[in-house]
């Protein structure tokens, strides 16, 4: 029964992605970034590189581990669940070459960090974004 529910939810989620794209990646306007591709967002968030094409360093900010938004973000970005993302990070953390993104306490926290650090990038609830932030990536329909 549980499986059936989960399956139903999964189907609904997949069938309605446009409705789920309620987040956007925002940056500090001082960073000078106006637009990021999906690959760039992916590489930055999953630790491939933290430098932008402009030469600026990018500091991704993650949502709390139990945040529903975080799960939606990774699902829609790279089609992985959080367990997979965690397993991925556990291998890299083990070697010590890179580290996972910094975790903000909440949406507000994340936006705060962006405001304070021009290198920071964060994905947040779309509704919370205001003119202090530049939306650099919004997942396509």
């Amino acid at each position: 029964m549980k499986t059936a529910h989960a399956l139903l939810i999964l189907l609904l989620a997949a069938a309605w992605p446009a409705a789920a794209a309620d987040w956007v990646v925002v940056a500090n306007p001082k960073a000078g970034i106006t637009r990021l591709s999906q690959d760039e967002v992916t590489n930055i968030y999953l630790g491939r590189y933290r430098r932008l094409a402009s030469g600026a360093t990018a500091e991704p900010i993650d949502q709390p581990a139990d945040s529903a938004l975080k799960a939606r973000f990774y699902r829609q970005l790279v089609d992985k669940n959080l367990a997979e993302i965690n397993a991925y990070w556990s291998r890299l953390v083990f070697s010590g070459k890179t580290r996972p993104p910094r975790i903000a306490g909440s949406n507000e926290d994340a936006l705060q960090i962006v405001l304070l650090h021009p290198d920071a990038l964060a994905y947040v609830d779309k509704a919370r974004v205001d003119s202090r932030f530049v939306v650099v990536f919004e997942i396509a329909e």
Binding site: L46, G47, R48, Y88, R91, L92, F94, S95, G96, K97, T98
Partner: peptide, 17 residues
Amino acid sequence: STASVAIFANDEQLARE
């Protein structure tokens, strides 16, 4: 998968492992 992670993350340490 580990190797691909290592390559993706450019993690020489992991690749060596």
